[in-house]
Nucleic acid binder design. Structure first.
Lengths: 141, 141
DNA sequence: GATAATCGTATGCATGTGCTTACTATCTGC
DNA sequence: GCAGATAGTAAGCACATGCATACGATTATC
């Protein structure tokens, strides 16, 4: 890898900023903030058994997560249900409207991503995204 | 790209955090903070003609850049020289000791990166890093 | 039953960041 | 020569974030 010029960290950071800048208006057009989108996404595959666990998943301080959840629940996009097995806990889950909003956001984000990657040949694109996801999955959250 | 699960932005953000977490102790062992490293790196290929331009390059508020530059200059790692062509400006350049410290940091970062990518087959790794750099270079700073 | 631990909630505090303001010194254009 | 603009510098302000504290409700352990 002696030919590599830029640090991985610098490239990732730069692309993160670019993605955030690109995603923000897409989400805003659907009435969703970035943290809200992150939370909705985290619930896509299934409910979080506790708010604390959701906070850890999205790496957002549990106390600062409250207003985000308040807002989303207030809009009917997610529900917080006391867990009968342990009433200290509240199970957090997407509602149908929440799923619909998330799907709309996701569609916009996907379109943006596809456009962003359009200049990369298909075979390389496939390798890039596969390796990217593998690397990301290997990092602790 | 219908098979892709995770948002690019989420993967990039996650990897950025992982890189920061991995780099921080590497830099600290060489007495360098992350912002300091970013600044040193930005000067690697040549001096910045003004501090303002350096600030834009590293995306750091020019007013907040001052203490960083003060610290680095105080350690003799960079110089700030009034530009005779326009004495409002100060040309910022690495010193030889600065280059040495940067090289040491870079070596540590490279070793970490190589280890991080070790599980990726060489051919895929090459494609991944090439595409990554191309994508990063295409984003506005 | 009493104590300790945990969850969700609200809030305080310290730190980092971006933007703004203000200043001195310098430069540019008229 | 003068007004306006710019560079570097210091500091204020608002906001975001992480961590800590405290509380009521609930659970687990002894």
């Amino acid at each position: 890898m002696t030919g590599r010029r830029q640090d991985l960290g610098a490239s990732f950071a730069r692309l993160t900023r670019a993605m955030i800048d690109a995603e923000t208006p897409i989400l805003a057009a659907r009435g969703v903030g970035m943290w809200e989108y992150v939370v909705l996404s985290a619930l896509e595959d299934g409910a979080a058994p506790t708010q604390a666990e959701l906070a850890a998943t999205v790496r957002r301080d549990k106390t600062r997560l409250i207003p985000i959840l308040d807002a989303l629940e207030g809009r009917g996009l997610l529900s917080r249900t006391p867990d009968p097995a342990d009433r200290r806990n509240r199970v957090v889950a997407l509602t149908e409207p929440g799923r619909a909003v998330l799907a709309a956001c996701r569609a916009g984000v996907r379109a943006m991503e596809d456009e962003f990657l359009a200049a990369v040949p298909a075979a390389e694109r496939r390798i890039f995204t596969t390796v990217l996801e593998q690397l990301a999955d290997r990092t602790s959250r």
